[in-house]
Design a protein around this nucleic acid. Structure first.
Lengths: 230, 230
DNA sequence: CCTACAATGTCATGAACCCGACAATTCGAT
DNA sequence: ATCGAATTGTCGGGTTCATGACATTGTAGG
């Protein structure tokens, strides 16, 4: 088996899209839920490079990923624009399947992938029987919606400085540390590395953060979240 | 009763947010659904200026608006930032209510408002009994999610020219006409009026559109949708 | 320990775009 | 027909930010 090493730029692109498109956090189903829904489809295995579904196909299935990673991309395969990469626990294809629209993007197995394939016609009756799961699904999608809406507002009228401050307050662990390279932060925000560097310098100058190698330490959360509000 | 005349800028701001935040299209429940769910709450009336809920309050209710308009805004009331305006058929407060989070924004009646107030503890059992409605709600939220995600992608790496081209292709009626002022288009896209004007001039120069008073006529859809893709 | 590579710091240049201002025009209402 | 308000067209200044280039510093693997 060939391991394709990806360029850092690609990985960053993914990281950013992961955030902007929001998918990886979208985990509406627990293992217990899956057990209940086991009548609605079956487990499938996919070899690296094969497709779970393709953009434009009629959406008759949704997939819960159990193992491996899947790339979501749009556009023709020769000039594909990757839209996200999702792993264990993520559900994909559900928007198209529930809406009765064709798939919005293509899904391609990166490595070996094990997934549970929900069949539309079998899933709907099962959901009717398990309203609690439907409700959990609804909550997950609403949460994701709220996150994405918040992001739209940020993107539109906030400066890079404010965005960086916001990211740091959100992403800091219990010790106030964020273990990301500046380049990664840049792609997470859809900004350039240089702008992020400049913003971090400004925050450093104000004594609100310290920076290290692949690390930012938050010193003054309060001040930082103030900066984040423009 | 005082009628507060709103500045055009405000209305445009609303129009834009309507689009970016996406709320006004979010109509998950039909009148028939409401009938089924009538046990889950009751009809309330609100006088102009009164609140349906306030940002930060515990979210114990969601509201289906039956008559009148409601402003959604964030931040303290003295410097409120309007986030959207919704009317008949819209459901608000559901994200917070289902997620068990405090309300994300405040909701204030613009004129006289009639709404159906869902009580969380009564709604959940009803939904369990009516899985079809829960499912419809889920589909509505997923559709909205998809729309918002698409918007994030556009905002990040598309120029105003491309965004204008995209808006025109989407918004054109059967005669290829878009009856919006340039200022409105600008706010729909979160751009300045001047930039939109410049973009339209460019498209006019290329012979892809004509412009009139409060009107843009699309002449070459194919070329336009090409421009929209960057 | 040393080397290759990744990450950071810094600069200059230019593009995109916002903002304020103002003239010209179109439209609707009196 | 006329006046006022809304809309369009246009200009220049100023800001933010992307891009490319390059030197410097840190880190991991042999």
């Amino acid at each position: 088996m060939t391991i394709v090493k990806e360029s850092p730029a690609d990985q960053q692109h993914l990281a950013w899209l992961a955030r902007s498109f929001g998918r990886p956090d979208y985990l509406p189903l627990s293992p217990a839920d899956l057990k209940v829904l086991s009548n609605a489809g079956e487990i499938i295995k996919k070899y690296p490079g094969t497709h779970l579904f393709k953009e434009g196909d009629a959406a008759t299935s949704a997939f819960l990923i159990r193992e491996g990673d899947v790339d979501l991309y749009r556009g023709p395969s020769h000039q594909r624009e990757v839209v996200g990469r999702v792993g264990q626990g993520a559900v994909i294809g559900d928007i198209a399947m529930f809406s009765g629209q064709p798939y919005i993007s293509s899904a391609r197995a990166v490595g070996h992938v094990t997934a549970f394939e929900f069949d539309r016609d079998r899933l709907l009756p099962e959901l009717a029987r398990s309203p609690a799961i439907t409700l959990r699904w609804l909550v997950a999608s609403l949460t994701q919606l709220e996150r994405t809406q918040r992001r739209v507002l940020n993107l539109m009228h906030k400066t890079v400085l404010a965005q960086v401050a916001g990211l740091l307050t959100n992403e800091a662990d219990d010790r106030g540390e964020v273990a990301l390279s500046q380049a990664t932060i840049a792609t997470l925000l859809g900004a350039s590395r240089q702008s992020v560097n400049e913003a971090l310098n400004e925050l450093k100058r104000r004594g609100q953060v310290e920076t290290g190698y692949r690390l930012v330490r938050v010193l003054d959360v309060a001040a930082l979240s103030l900066v984040a509000q423009d």
